[in-house]
Design a protein around this nucleic acid. Structure first.
Lengths: 148, 148
DNA sequence: CTACATCCTCTAGCCACTAGAGGATCAAGC
DNA sequence: GCTTGATCCTCTAGTGGCTAGAGGATGTAG
């Protein structure tokens, strides 16, 4: 049983151009082609794409997914590396949550104090103008975490 | 008292190219220039840039900041719009946190179950392969929230 | 007068896609 | 067999919010 790219897209809940993109960057192997140059897929392709999609949903970077896929292609290797990648991702997500909680608290204070008058007396504008209004929040580092 | 772009950068804790970028996209007005074409700034520029930086730290998009700056330039207008923008940003951050908490929980389950053997029996790889392992998490929408 | 820092403009790159142009091929209905 | 519309192909460019670097002019300190 073979699949077109569109059918694969539906099966794994991923958009068609994204599949082509994953092939281009080497997350998916080059697909076999029909005589008229259309891509042809099989069941394992669905599995692999679903793996990628799931990992992306969990916020893994493409590079991390590449490593995880390499691992899953070599079942005899020890899986420490996979555990490390997962632990790192967990810690990245936890850091990100903590940072966003700081933002949330500051935004909440801002919104709670919202005035109903003119901009000249607006708390929102005022708070934005003066950093001193907020509780000291440390030096947050950028930390890549997926939007999804 | 005037400032060079480098001094402004230090005063507002923003990198020099970022200032030029903000000028280019119109968040900052075109700076006055010296005879040798160097940008010159004054105190209000520091205020404006600090405003922008603070808003970016809070995760406001450039478009939202543009609106907030427009408002703060017109102190006589009612500030409802500013309140709305702040409330929207708060809600975006809250949504984002909720989404990340779902990810965190799933990653935590994955990491807690980590094996110490071979990839063939690795929980991490297994969980990634099979979406059924995770608690149903809904359809999260992309929601732009700053990294900082 | 010589380093060296800072400034200028311009282009390209980051991430993970997404959108669209312009054209070929396929499947279904008449 | 023919038309219609969906799907496919490749290619380029755009998204957001910067960051990095080339290549050159200007400023400042010793």
């Amino acid at each position: 049983m073979t699949l077109t790219i569109g059918q694969l897209a539906k099966a794994a809940d991923v958009k068609v151009p994204t599949i082509r993109f994953y092939e281009e960057i080497g997350l998916l192997p080059r697909a076999a082609r029909t005589a008229s140059d259309r891509r042809v897929y099989d069941e394992p392709a669905v599995q692999r794409l679903a793996f990628i999609r799931h990992a992306r949903q969990l916020g893994f970077s493409v590079e991390a997914i590449r490593a995880l896929l390499d691992l899953s292609d070599q079942p005899d290797r020890p899986c420490d590396e996979a555990n490390v990648l997962a632990a790192e991702q967990l810690s990245a997500v936890e850091t990100k949550i903590a940072q966003l909680e700081v933002l949330r608290d500051e935004l909440r204070r801002m919104v709670d104090a919202a005035c109903h008058g003119r901009v000249s007396a607006c708390r929102v504008i005022e708070v934005l103008s003066d950093h001193g209004h907020c509780e000291g929040h440390g030096t947050p580092r950028p930390m890549a975490v997926a939007d999804a």
